[in-house]
């Protein structure tokens, strides 16, 4: 199958890759670019493990074709924080024990960053509804929501 050349921006770095047109952005990130921080849980848009941003908007990368990334600005978990200097959200997830197995964590952190960019002061209900598309089977969400609310408070305080 002929491959298509895609020029895009990922985490503010110019990136080029080749893909088959039927490969999703998720496939391209994971299998063509070896960016495996974005996870695949369902490939039907029902679990949120593959959450990324496209031009700042939160989407499931399993429901975007890789070729659609042409000329767009993609944001993934690999662009959030660094090991030496974690993002507040990442730090709060660790402090609150807001992850158990960790497979949903990258998607949740990407989604939480999008939430707090849109709404720096969410209510608990707003946070729960915004993140309803990010399934977690381990935690019962309690500690995740606490980490999100604590992140929001800290980010407002330090803004």
């Amino acid at each position: 199958m002929a491959k298509t050349h895609v020029s895009t921006t990922i985490n503010n770095e110019p990136v080029e890759f080749l893909c088959e047109p039927n490969q999703t952005l998720l496939d391209c990130l994971r299998n063509e670019l070896q960016m495996t921080g974005t996870k695949e849980g369902c490939s039907t848009g029902d679990c949120g493990a593959c959450s990324v941003t496209v031009n700042g908007r939160l989407v499931c990368s399993c429901l975007v074709f890789g070729v659609e990334a042409e000329g767009q600005n993609i944001g993934t978990i690999e662009g959030i924080g660094k090991a030496e200097n974690l993002h507040v959200i990442q730090q709060k997830f660790l402090e609150h024990a807001a992850l158990q197995c960790g497979i949903c964590t990258p998607g949740l952190i990407v989604a939480t960053e999008a939430l707090l960019a849109e709404n720096p002061d969410p209510t608990e209900a707003e946070a729960r509804y915004y993140l309803a598309g990010n399934l977690c089977r381990c935690t019962g969400y309690d500690k995740i929501i606490r980490a999100v609310m604590d992140s929001a408070a800290e980010m407002r305080g330090t803004a």
Binding site: T36, A83, L99, G102, P106
Partner: peptide, 23 residues
């Protein structure tokens, strides 16, 4: 105590390698 888990950094940064992550 409520310590930070040793594998925590890998899991919040996407570096942790799960079942489908090895090529």
């Amino acid at each position: 105590q409520r310590t930070i888990r040793p594998d925590g950094f890998d899991k919040v940064t996407g570096r942790a390698n799960f079942g489908a992550d090895l090529t």
